[in-house]
Amino acid sequence: MISKNQHPMKLAMVSIFVEDPAKAFKYYTNTLGFLEVMFSPENYIAIIKSPLGTDPTTILLEPTEPNGIQVARDYKKKLYEMGIPVISFSAQDIHETTRELKNKGVVFKKDPVKTDYGFEAVFDDDNGNYIQLLQMD
């Protein structure tokens, strides 16, 4: 419960580090089905959102190249080497979503498996990141 003295906040935007925002934008919209919010490739700006629901949360496809911040490049590279997903997306039917994405050429590092909290799968976003796909019980 929020007290009268608190000032609650809502998630507005998250970032995913990508090497090429234009390539990532095409992949996230054409392959994964996200919607364009803003796309200015000449300025290395690509912002997308989920096509589901009314949640206004957006994702900034944050460039690490050219002239990106070295620590961001190192962080992204190390997470990928360790096989750690950078973000989690949810699916109503993870098995059907996995089939659809595989038919579009998405490469899965981990097919759906049962977990204590539901099902999870992990795929490569074709821009140096692993994405976790979840279906919660």
Rank of each mutant, 00 (worst) to 15 (best):
F17I: 03
K10N: 10
F108G: 05
Q135P: 12
D93Y: 06
E62V: 00
K76R: 13
F39M: 01
G118R: 03
L134H: 11
P21Y: 03
Y130Q: 04
Y27G: 01
G83D: 11
V18Y: 01
P85C: 08
Q135N: 12
V71D: 13
E120V: 09
T97C: 09
E65Q: 10
F39W: 06
G118V: 03
Q92F: 11
I69Y: 15
Q135C: 10
M9A: 13
I94Y: 04
K4D: 14
K23T: 02
E19K: 15
A91D: 07
V106C: 04
P56Q: 12
Y80Q: 08
G53V: 08
K77N: 13
P63G: 02
I48W: 01
P63Y: 01
G33S: 07
K114T: 15
D125E: 02
F123A: 01
K26W: 00
M38E: 14
L133C: 08
D20G: 01
N67H: 09
D74Q: 10
N43Y: 10
P8R: 12
V71I: 14
T98E: 14
T98L: 06
K10S: 15
I94M: 05
K23E: 03
G68A: 07
V107R: 13
K110D: 14
M9E: 10
F17D: 05
T64R: 01
Y27T: 14
T97V: 14
F39L: 02
R73T: 11
G68L: 07
I47E: 01
P41E: 05
Q132I: 08
T54Y: 09
E42Y: 00
M13A: 13
D116H: 09
F119S: 10
V14G: 10
L35V: 09
L133Q: 08
P21K: 02
M38T: 15
Y130S: 04
F39N: 03
M13W: 07
F39V: 01
V86P: 03
L60T: 00
D125A: 03
Q70S: 11
Q92C: 06
V37I: 13
V14D: 01
F39D: 00
V71E: 15
K4L: 13
I84N: 08
P51V: 07
P21T: 05
I2R: 09
P66S: 05
N129W: 00
L101F: 15
Y80W: 10
F123C: 08
I48F: 04
G105W: 09
